[in-house]
Nucleic acid binder design. Sequence first.
DNA 1: GTTGTTCAGTGATAAAGTCACACTCAACCT
DNA 2: AGGTTGAGTGTGACTTTATCACTGAACAAC
Lengths: 213, 213
Amino acid sequence: MAAHSIFDTLNDALKRETLSDVQVMRFEPGQVLFRAGEHCQGLPLVIKGGVKVQMTGASGHSIVLYRMTSDDICTLSIGCLMTGRGYRAEAVVEAETEAAMIPRPLFDNLMQQSADFRLGIMESYGRRLDDLMLLVEEVAFRRMDERLEEWLLARARKGQSLLKITHQELAVELGTAREVISRLLKELERKELVHLARGRVEVTGLMNRPPAP
Amino acid sequence: MAAHSIFDTLNDALKRETLSDVQVMRFEPGQVLFRAGEHCQGLPLVIKGGVKVQMTGASGHSIVLYRMTSDDICTLSIGCLMTGRGYRAEAVVEAETEAAMIPRPLFDNLMQQSADFRLGIMESYGRRLDDLMLLVEEVAFRRMDERLEEWLLARARKGQSLLKITHQELAVELGTAREVISRLLKELERKELVHLARGRVEVTGLMNRPPAP
DNA sequence: GTTGTTCAGTGATAAAGTCACACTCAACCT
DNA sequence: AGGTTGAGTGTGACTTTATCACTGAACAAC
C-alpha cells in the first residue's frame, strides 16, 4: 500500500488553494518543533522525516509519548489551536524533516470542504488515542525488562542491530530512570543478548524471540 | 458558565434533523456501554450522567482512563467508527445516564454542515489527549501514596467525605494492585487522615492539604 | 444458625525507583 | 603529549511498589 498524503484526497481547486497557503519548512535532527507551554502557531503536517513527542513530569523525568512520521498530522497542535491552551509536551525532530505548516483558516476551510480530509483527521486522532491508551497500559502494568527487550528488538528488526543510543535516552523512551536501564542492560549483556559500549547497544541475541503481543 | 450541549450550536434545520435521527437511551449504573473488542454501533453523546472508561491489560489488571459527563461525546467511538477497528477499552455507567446515540450518517452530516459542531468535536479530542497524557505522566512518575491522597481528597471536596468504594475499585482507579491500596490506606488510617470500614473510606483529615499541582 | 462470597489484612519476596558517588572514555585545550 | 572537562556508565544501599500466597472478617442468602 503506497503511503499517500492526506492532501492527495483533495480536489484540484482545494489543492491549488492549499499549495498557495501552506508553508513548507525543513527541520534538522535535534531541532524543537514546539516546547511545553508554548502556543500553537500553525498545524504541522509531516511530509517526510521523523519527530518524537515527549513530555516531562514534575519530577523532571521525561517519557516519549509517540512519534510522527510521513503524512502524520500533529493532533496535539489541533487541540492547542482550538482551545488556545499551550502545549503540554514537546516535539523534537529525530530525522531530517519536511513539514507543511497549515494556518488555522486553511484548516477550517479544509475541514468544511473535504470529507476525506475530515476522515483523515479523525483517523489520526483515533490512532493517537490508541497509542496513548496502549502506553498507559504498558507503563502501568508491564515489566521493565520485557519492555526494554521489546523496544530493542523492534528497533533492531527494522534497521541495523547496532543502535546508537545512550542509557539516558533509553530511559526516556520507556519512562524510567537511567540506573534502571543500566542495570537491565548489564543483565542482558550477561545473558549475551546484547553487547554494550559507550553510547551504543548492539543487539546480538534477541532476534528469535516472539514478537510483541 | 452554564453547560450547554453541542447540539445547541446547531441551526434550526439541523436541529430538527438531528432530533429525528437521534435515539436517546437510558442506562443504569453498572451497565456496560461497550466492551473491549466490540465494534462501534453509533456515537454516544452523554446528555446527563456519568460513564467511566477503563482498559484491562494483558496481566488482567485494569485502569480507569477517563470519565465522560454531561455533553461529552465519546471520542473513542469516533475512532472506532472511522477506522472500523474494535474498542480497546470498556465503558461502564456510574450514575444514571441519558445518552443520544448518533448514527454515522448524521455525524458525517453534522461535521460537514456545522463549524461549531466540528469545533466541539475537536475540543473533545483535545481534552481526551490531554487527559491521557497527564495520566501517562502520573502513572510513570508519581508516587502512589500521593496519588491516592489526591484522589481521595478530590472526591471528598466535591461531595461527601464518606466514600463508598472498595480497595479493589480504588486500585483500578489508580492502576495498581489491591494490596498496595490496602497498605497505603492502613497507613493513612494510622495517621488519622481516613477512617476505614468494609466498602467505605471516610476522609477525615486531608482537607487542609495543598490542592493537586 | 450455617454456608458461601466478597472484602480486607499481612508476611515474604521480587522488581523498580531513588540517592549518592566513583569510574571511564572521548573530546578539547594549551 | 599531558591535563582538564563533561557526558556517559557502574554500583551499593535503601525505599517504594508489585506479586504471591495465604488468613480472617463482614455480609448475604439460605
